[in-house]
Amino acid sequence: MAKPPARRAVRGATVNTESRRFNLPQVEADGDWLDARDDLDGVPAPLHTTVTIEHPRTIISRNASPDVGFDRSINPYRGCEHGCIYCFARPTHAFHDLSPGLDFESRLFAKPDAAALLRAELARPGYTVAPIALGTNTDPYQPIESDWRITRGILEVLAETHHPLTITTKSDRVLRDLDLLGPMAAQGLAGVAMSVTSLDPLIARTIEPRAPHPERRLKAVRALADAGVPVYVSIAPVIPAITDHELEHLVERAAEAGAQACFFIPVRLPHEVAPLFRAWLDTHYPDRAAKVMAIIQSLRGGRDNDPDFFTRMKGSGPWAELMRTRFKIACRKHGLANRGTTLRTDLFRRPAGPQGELF
């Protein structure tokens, strides 16, 4: 019987698939014996995280998507060491001619100039205020934030200027910044969404290998709520036949932890995420891989992914309707009204420029 392929420990993707190529010519191996190490030893070479410094000209990204509740965001990092197999941001690594697979979770980019760029953009005369979203692409509190502290610098600028913000994360590292988020929340300037996709540590470790334990995230929800920060639990994504059975229990635990609302999104598999997800299923859930993909396709109009506005966030068909019904009943049972928080924009103070700092 053929030996199963060797696996790297504590990584999400099982392969480093080819990506769409945008910029560079095809890279070829140089013939060094290290190129064949996996074949020679039968064990994958250790995969270490590297960080490349990026110097963008601006830091606020804009979007006009009609089904997204914000028009601007900041991403302190590209790539994410949490390694969530389902991450819809994985295809962005193709823009660097890197793989959305293992490269996405190990070859990261950091933007240390983010706070200075943000200050300059907020100081522009034509800038109009609206909440800035952090964590919409990759997690602003992934492990490297402990050393780089780029998210911290961004929050300091937003706190200084009384600018509203929202944060989405699956890390309890957000509690490090309660000294900023607490006072901002008291002024109606901040809200946090904590992502909790499974309460089963074995499942969580498989789908989100380097993210904090689910119980740590729920404790963070309680700490944020106790500090007066509006906090939500994001059950996103829901993976059919793997995590969907936990939907009601996740809502219950979110309510117990002090969340004021929950929301969920069925799993999305854009571009390179679909083959990565299929390979992951074959490795970790071969007994149900076909069933999982069949349900996903029923949610997505017969495709692996539905890119259309509005339906991409909700899914369609009987499986999607069943999830929505179960979710609504659970929220009603546990007293979650699912009302959002309107953040204030009238307190914004444009940052002082070099001239203003002289007086």
Rank of each mutant, 00 (worst) to 15 (best):
A116M: 11
A116P: 00
A116H: 06
L117C: 00
L117D: 12
L117N: 05
L117R: 06
L117K: 05
L117G: 01
L118P: 07
L118N: 06
L118C: 09
L118F: 04
L118R: 07
L118E: 08
R119G: 04
R119Y: 01
R119A: 12
A120L: 09
A120Q: 14
E121F: 04
E121R: 13
E121K: 09
E121H: 03
E121C: 01
L122D: 08
A123L: 05
A123S: 13
A123M: 07
A123D: 11
A123E: 12
A123C: 08
A123W: 03
R124C: 02
R124M: 14
R124W: 02
R124L: 02
R124Q: 12
R124Y: 01
P125K: 02
P125N: 06
G126T: 03
G126M: 02
G126R: 01
Y127E: 13
Y127F: 15
Y127Q: 08
Y127T: 12
Y127P: 01
T128Y: 02
T128V: 15
T128W: 06
T128N: 05
V129H: 11
V129E: 13
A130H: 07
A130N: 14
A130M: 08
A130Q: 14
P131E: 15
P131M: 06
P131Q: 02
P131I: 00
P131R: 01
I132K: 09
I132D: 10
I132V: 13
I132F: 00
A133E: 15
L134N: 04
L134R: 01
L134P: 04
L134E: 10
L134K: 05
G135K: 12
G135F: 14
G135N: 09
G135V: 05
G135S: 10
G135T: 06
G135Q: 10
T136N: 10
T136S: 09
T136W: 03
N137A: 15
N137F: 05
N137Y: 07
T138K: 09
T138A: 09
T138H: 13
D139V: 10
D139F: 03
P140I: 12
Y141N: 10
Y141W: 09
Y141R: 03
Y141D: 11
Y141C: 11
Y141S: 07
Y141V: 14
Q142T: 13
Q142P: 10
Q142A: 08
Q142Y: 15
Q142W: 07
Q142G: 12
P143D: 05
P143V: 05
P143E: 02
I144A: 09
I144D: 06
I144H: 10
I144F: 11
I144C: 12
E145Y: 08
S146D: 14
S146R: 14
S146T: 12
D147T: 05
D147K: 13
D147C: 04
W148T: 00
W148F: 06
W148L: 08
W148I: 01
W148C: 02
W148K: 09
R149S: 03
R149E: 14
R149W: 15
R149Q: 15
I150L: 08
I150A: 01
T151A: 15
T151G: 04
T151P: 07
T151H: 10
R152Q: 11
R152D: 12
R152A: 07
R152V: 00
R152S: 04
G153R: 01
G153S: 07
I154N: 01
L155I: 08
L155Y: 01
L155H: 08
L155P: 00
E156P: 02
V157H: 02
V157T: 07
V157A: 11
L158V: 00
L158G: 01
